[in-house]
Design a protein around this nucleic acid. Structure first.
Length: 591
RNA sequence: GGUUCCGUAGCUCAGUUGGAUAGAGCAACAGAUUUCUAAUCUGUGGGUCACAGGUUCGAAUCCUGUCGGGAUCACCA
């Protein structure tokens, strides 16, 4: 039985019976802690039309609910707020209903395919902190949508071509001396990243030298020999030059091997990988067709553009004058390919908010081209991750490397666990698994608890915190519950949901939270917001911990109460497990 | 400069369509363990919700303006 629905229906009925008012959209809110009651109905909106005082109206509805609803046991009216107390029997009934429902937390099948594209790395440098937010978000959103009843396809569009790759390749060619990941003792992505930095160093030196000869900064940047070489290399690549392609393939393989390891540690996965090198030609084809049909136009230098001034935007380049494709060219091609593969009705792009403009343009172009996937495109635009020292800049070396960070977190988890002396009874493998679980739990929770749309600050000291509003706090609560269930099992206590005499305040709070789970899940799916789940599961863990401190299970003389509390703890543990899984976070049974 | 997002406690963040005395965590201070895991729990202090107007029974929330910050406006991806 859903208490909320029951009350809403009876308020509607009360308004109809007592005042002849049709109102089917009744909104309830949880009662503030300082007042008695569980649910509150605000009567203000109705007093004017009914010409009643708030107290009169509140009393009338309150009395009606006590008499008819079967769940409201009492009420009080403060100003315009009708606070309703719920009978224990109704809470227990609610709990029993959830306990029985094996599919609790899985919403009905929507018969709809949704694609979530995330990660989308460049193959010229290793992943960093910003990518962590992206990957955790993307994976979590995919889990949340699946729990909402969608068929979800996770994809990763790898930007494996373009001028940036050529920069790494060129620098490797010039300064690499045949180095390999094995010979350098580096992960492949880190090795390639090293040469990207190398390129930038030499390029800057060239620019400086040119400026010294009297060139303007702008001209110097365009005329630096290294950049020109890189541009030539891109042209050669697009013309399938054998040597260039061979080098490109070799370096890409290094990077993919490195990324694979990182993804595994992050605990993310994909159903399908797309490579920009496989989609840009299709994009070019659409540009040509669009040029014929007049969606695009060509300038004198042969570059191709779209005019979006009628939409309040600018003109945007879609093909360079040398015929090579740009970022958006391949995105047009990729969109087509993805749709052909999966015929999805919604497509979510998890990409940073610095690309808001890019996606606005992309979606408009798709519409102008009249593609069948013109609708349902959504840019999940998340804010940057800042450091206390300011913005991360890969070229200036102020990035936090993803691999390093995850390793540090694991080290910290190990230290912390040992300090607390909690490793007893663990094999070495189990212990290492635990450190990993805790480390990733802390990191993921830290990055996911903030509203995705907002930029956030990454404070290294706070992120490794294991107390308070953190992943490990929730994991700890789960481990505690498992401990109780183990003991109950040993003592042969079976959970049940009937014959429970009097509920504690903290038990009511927990049951209320449990009942909210489907709604929170639906909201999180609608908003694409793992943060909603994060806050929910934290609240649940906190409420359970309060119960844990106030109430004892195994010393409880009343066997009915004991059995109820075992069932109760089990359900909280399961719900924590489910909610954390939506965030991509594992929960240990001991810690 | 145009567009756009943001400004809530010392710090990091919540605050669902406008609802009561604006909430958590961290940090500070004071407590709780003969009993199921103290990575826990309880309590105290801490606020001009950037500022000024407006809308109304009622505004952190909606509207206008001002100030401050970010992103973007590339033949980079």
């Amino acid at each position: 039985m859903n208490i909320e629905k029951t009350i809403q229906n009876h308020i509607s009925a009360a308004l109809k019976a007592e005042f002849d008012v049709e109102e089917n959209n009744i909104s309830l809110q949880p009662t503030r802690k300082d007042f008695e009651g569980s649910y509150t109905f605000v009567v203000f909106p109705y007093i004017k039309a009914l010409r009643k005082s708030p107290v009169e109206l509140g009393n009338a509805i309150g009395n009606y609910l006590v008499a008819h609803s079967g769940v409201v046991s009492g009420f009080n009216v403060v100003q315009g707020f009708l606070n309703l107390s719920i009978a224990d029997a109704a809470w227990i009934d609610l709990f029993a209903g959830i306990f029985k429902d094996k599919n609790f937390g899985q919403l009905p099948d929507k018969q709809e395919v949704v694609m979530v594209e995330y990660s989308s790395p460049n193959t010229n440098k290793p992943l960093h902190l910003g990518h962590l937010r992206n990957n955790f978000l993307g994976f979590s959103v995919a889990q949340i949508l699946a729990a909402n009843g969608y068929k979800v396809i996770k994809t990763n569009l790898v930007n494996d071509r373009g001028i940036h790759i050529c920069k790494s390749m060129l620098a490797y060619q010039k300064f690499g001396n045949g180095e390999t990941p094995e010979s350098a003792g580096l992960k492949g992505d880190h090795l390639v990243g090293k040469y990207y930095v190398e390129f930038d160093k030499h390029y800057k030196a060239e620019v400086k030298a040119l400026e010294a000869t009297g060139l303007s900064e702008e001209d110097a940047k365009k005329q630096a020999p290294l950049l020109i070489e890189a541009q030539e290399m891109l042209l050669k690549w697009e013309n399938n030059d054998a040597e260039t392609v061979a080098l490109w393939k070799k370096m890409n393989e290094w990077v993919f091997a490195g990324f694979g390891q990182t993804y595994q540690k992050m605990g993310v996965s994909f159903d399908k990988m797309y490579r920009e090198s496989e989609t840009y030609l299709l994009g070019k084809k659409f540009v040509e067709e669009g040029l014929q049909s007049g969606v695009f136009f060509q300038k004198e230098d042969n570059s191709v553009w779209i005019d979006l001034t009628d939409e309040g935007l600018d003109q945007k380049l879609v093909l360079r004058k040398d015929g090579t494709s740009v970022y958006i060219t391949q995105d047009i091609g990729t969109a087509e390919l993805k749709y052909n593969d999966f015929k999805m009705s919604k497509s979510v792009y998890v990409v940073g908010n610095e690309q808001d403009y890019h996606f606005e343009v992309l979606f408009k172009i798709i519409k102008k081209l009249g593609r069948p996937y013109s609708e349902g495109n959504y840019h999940l635009s998340y804010g940057m991750v800042d450091l206390p020292s300011g913005k991360m800049k890969s070229r200036e070396g102020t990035v936090v490397d993803a691999d390093d960070l995850m390793q540090e977190m694991t080290d910290t988890a190990r230290e912390r666990t040992m300090e607390l002396g909690k490793t007893e009874g663990f094999t070495e493998t189990e212990a290492n698994e635990l450190y990993d679980t805790l480390a990733m739990g802390a990191l993921k929770y830290f990055l996911l608890k903030v509203d995705p749309k907002k930029r956030m600050l990454f404070n290294p000291e706070e992120s490794i915190d294991f107390q308070g509003h953190t992943g490990p706090f929730i994991q700890y609560t789960h481990a505690r519950i498992c401990s109780i269930l183990r003991k109950a099992h040993e003592q042969g206590i079976i959970g049940k949901t009937t014959d429970y005499p009097i509920l504690q305040e903290s038990e009511r709070d927990v049951i209320y939270l449990l009942s909210q789970y489907p709604q929170v899940l639906a909201d999180a799916g609608k908003e694409f917001s793992p943060a909603l789940i994060s806050f929910y599961v934290y609240d649940l863990a906190k409420a359970y911990n309060r119960f844990y401190n106030e109430v004892n299970i195994f010393n409880e003389p009343d066997k009915n109460a004991q059995q109820f509390r075992v069932a109760f703890s089990g359900l909280v543990g399961e719900t924590i497990n489910k909610a954390m899984a939506l965030l991509g976070i594992k929960v240990p049974s001991r810690m």
